[in-house]
């Protein structure tokens, strides 16, 4: 079954987590990254130009 060893994670997140504290806020680095990525994705979706459609308007 050695051939499936490639299925093992390349960077397994198996160590104890790291945590961030600001006053009452206490969040794992992993969750923090996910939430920051969500905000970044949202802002990027608003700001980045959407390709294609804008200059090809057709009346219907």
């Amino acid at each position: 079954m050695a051939w499936i060893s490639f299925l093992a994670a390349l960077i397994p997140l198996n160590g104890y987590g790291h945590y961030l504290h600001w006053g009452v806020i206490n969040i794992s680095v992993a969750n923090f990254i996910v939430i920051v990525l969500m905000v970044v994705t949202f802002v990027a979706a608003l700001l980045l130009p959407f390709p294609g459609r804008s200059r090809r308007k057709e009346s219907k």
């Binding site: 949202f42 990027a44 979706a45 608003l46 980045l48 959407f50 459609r53 804008s54 308007k57 057709e58 219907k60």
Partner: peptide, 14 residues
């Protein structure tokens, strides 16, 4: 097969 012309933002892909 068409969308109103204002539908032009990445926010629509989510």
């Amino acid at each position: 097969d068409t969308q109103p012309a204002y539908v032009s933002s990445w926010i629509y892909v989510f």
